[in-house]
Amino acid sequence: MSMAKAENGPPHLAFDRVEVYYSALVAGLKGVSLSIERGEFVFLCGQTGSGKSTLLKLITREVRETKGQVSLLGRDLGQLPDREIPYLRRQMGIVPQDYGLLPNKKVWENVAYAMRAVNRSKREVRAKVPQILEQVNIMHRADAFPYELSGGEQQRVAIARALINDPPLLIADEPTGNLDPTHSAEIMALLSRLNEQGTTIIVATHDIPIVQRLQQRVVELEFGTIVGDTAAGETWSPNISSAEYTTFEEKETDYQFDGEEFEIYLEEPSPEAAAEETGEPTHEEETPRA
């Protein structure tokens, strides 16, 4: 549940009858109106091509709306000159689906490089990098290369990098898309913790069990329109076939989620889950990612 919603001022993000057409025949969004308050945690759900990515790209100004208006804290993003886009992106943390880590740089170097790219001094980098790595609980792997990390650890590094500008808004595209349930849970716990600290979180995902478990606000998209908007605390069930969403098989098992126990459904326990059951550590057993 969101802990730090702001009561006053414009919403963090507002979409007013937004349409995006990539060509005369290809629509990304068709008349989407949506308001996201400061400190909210919002899941964007929908099958591939539903418009989730277009919506995220509007926020990062990778695309511009064809009609309507997108506002960030009351500022019309469509009117933002290109030269100001980098400064817009410093007001948000972006976590791409594929993590986007530099394979030839260690964990701390990945974060440091991003900081140096936004003109932070070496002194600032030295002070801040350990702090961020601690924040996302990856400090113990600071000297590892990305290929030596598990998917979950790589995702943590990607989140760490997204936090370099202390952003009030964090956008994550399918943060659990490449992860097993254990690591998915860890990542969602991390995002929840950031949300509790006041960060607005927007997560595009297919992961129904995670969405249902967290009971945050869920905006469901289909063919470029919003087909459902479930408030936080309410039970959400997909408007469209869950087969479109499913990313893993279903079988009931228990996981620890940020100190709170919850359930995820799996066909068979993953090797990590099996290892946990036998009390063995999981990090070392995971196949390193190339």
Binding site: P86, R90, V118, R161, A162
Partner: peptide, 16 residues
Amino acid sequence: RREHRIMHLVGANQAT
């Protein structure tokens, strides 16, 4: 391209 993508991602300006 990876480095440039990261730069775009975190808000590095065009000059950088």
